[in-house]
Amino acid sequence: MSQTFLDQLWIARHVIVNGVAMTVSISLLAILAGSVLGIFVGLALVYGNGVLRLIVRAYTDVIRGTPVLVLVLASYYVSSAVGIELGPFAAGVVALAIFCSSHVGEIVRGALQAIPKGQTEAAKAIGLTFTQTFTSVLWPQALRQCLPAWVNTAAEMVKASTLLSVIGVAELLLRTQEIISRNFMSLQFYFLAGALYFVVNFGIERFGKFVERKTALPS
């Protein structure tokens, strides 16, 4: 068997590419679903009535107090136990999406509550209804405020995707472990995997900075 890292890398290239593709699809799905759900969570926390707010608060407190690995395992085992045929990929993405939603919910809540009350008052004073106030005045400001923290959460999701290896989803970490079990070059390949994750997250952060610059208000 060829002993250089580069040779082994060339042999394993398809496996690694598949791993990266799987990692990206897990992360993307979890981020999208989690963010959409998270927006509703945030809205419920800010504008909901007492009962709704209590329920949603309990939801976010429990999710945030639980390690992500426990969420992934619970999702996997519980879903098959209650008869919902999810399979590891779907179960994992659901768990990550729920985790993401609790973080995004907090971010959205914080952003909306950070907007000075005077904004709502000025909107009321010119006769805007609540919906108009929210869509034209509050949400555009909140969205800008959310951006850095949201980019952070997106990077966290990419890192959390590695946990799906525990339930057998063939993402980058599991693929890396498969490769290592054949050629025993653990240091080199773990390092490669780390570098690939770094590249993905670096890309996400660069993208975030780009969007921030584009949407910044001139002063």
């Binding site: 000075p116 005077g118 904004q119 008052e121 000025a122 909107a123 034209s136 400001q141 800008r144 208000l217």
Partner: peptide, 11 residues
């Protein structure tokens, strides 16, 4: 109404 803190929409 005009307010003490202006309350213009910054965006």
């Amino acid at each position: 109404m005009a307010f003490q803190q202006f309350n213009l929409f910054p965006h």
